[in-house]
Amino acid sequence: MLSPILPATGRLLISEPFLNDPNFKRSVILLAEHTTEASIGFVLNQRSNLQLNDLIPELENADFPIYVGGPVANDTIHFIHRAYDKMNDGEEIAPGIYWGGNFETLKVLIEGNLLSPSEVKFFIGYSGWAEAQLMEEISQNTWLVSDRYDTDVLFTGNEEEVWRDVIVNLGPKYAHVVNFPQNPNLN
């Protein structure tokens, strides 16, 4: 899969269909930061067995799912949101999509049931690439880069369909890829 679009903050990385790395198999990653020195992103469709209240017990009713953002720094919590009107904080990484913000404000909003999983998504760890590493992987056809997506896909609870939906959204040139088996040896 050749990618004519270059990576940039707010764009998606879509793994090629036969990537066997368990961290990135059929994954979709939102790039939260992309510079010439490094890239940081979060796997959108790798849900863990944890809820936010498992990680932060004082948020008893915070049954927000936790996603594995990637294999780096799995002892950290990150979040993206589309609730700037409530948070008044965060770094805009795509139109209407924000990375991080004041965690104390976030906790107050969660405790008051003023945020829903359709507005905020939590990750443990992140995906990271050193200088030129991501571009090398793209040149090896590991990733397809997309700037065409509905922001609802970032917050969907149906992680099984995220990879498929993002591929189909790229148009007929790529839509056939969703039918490739995960293991070509089983074909």
Rank of each mutant, 00 (worst) to 15 (best):
D54G: 07
P57R: 00
L59R: 11
A38K: 15
L59H: 11
S39V: 06
I56T: 13
N45G: 01
D75Y: 02
H78Q: 11
P65N: 10
D54M: 06
S48V: 00
S39G: 07
D75Q: 11
V72W: 10
F64P: 01
R82I: 13
F79H: 08
E60T: 14
I66N: 08
S39C: 06
I56C: 08
Q46A: 12
G70L: 04
L50A: 09
L52D: 05
P57Y: 00
A38F: 13
G70F: 02
F42Y: 15
S48Y: 05
N49S: 11
S48Q: 10
I56H: 08
S48P: 00
Y67N: 11
V72F: 14
P71V: 00
F64E: 02
F42C: 00
D54L: 05
N53R: 13
H81C: 07
N53D: 08
V72L: 11
Q46P: 00
A73D: 07
S48H: 04
G70Y: 00
L55I: 09
N61R: 15
Q51M: 09
L52W: 07
F79N: 05
N45C: 03
I80K: 02
L50P: 03
Y67P: 01
L44K: 02
L50N: 08
N74Q: 15
R47D: 01
F42N: 02
D54N: 13
Q46W: 03
N49R: 06
P71F: 00
N53H: 13
H81F: 14
L59A: 12
L55N: 07
R82Q: 15
Q51E: 09
Q51D: 04
E58C: 05
I40L: 12
P65T: 05
L50Q: 14
H81G: 05
L55M: 12
I66D: 04
L52C: 05
R47Y: 01
E58H: 14
I80Y: 09
H81T: 08
V72I: 15
Y67G: 06
H78P: 07
N49E: 15
I56Y: 03
F42I: 02
A38N: 12
R47V: 00
S39N: 09
E60Y: 12
Y67V: 09
R82M: 12
I56E: 07
V72E: 02
V72A: 10
I56N: 09
V72D: 01
P71D: 02
P71H: 02
R82H: 14
G41W: 01
P71K: 01
L44V: 05
F79K: 07
F79P: 03
E37F: 06
V72R: 14
N45D: 03
L52E: 06
S39L: 03
N53M: 06
S48D: 04
I77T: 13
D75V: 05
Q51V: 03
L55E: 05
N61A: 14
Q46S: 11
T76M: 13
L50T: 06
I66P: 08
E60W: 10
F79D: 08
F64R: 01
Q51I: 03
G70T: 02
A62H: 05
Y67I: 08
G69W: 04
I77R: 04
I66Y: 12
T76P: 02
Q46V: 01
A38Q: 15
N45F: 04
L44Y: 05
T76I: 10
G41M: 05
H81P: 03
I80Q: 04
G69E: 11
G69D: 11
E37L: 11
Q46C: 07
P65V: 01
N45M: 04
D63T: 13
R47F: 00
N74R: 10
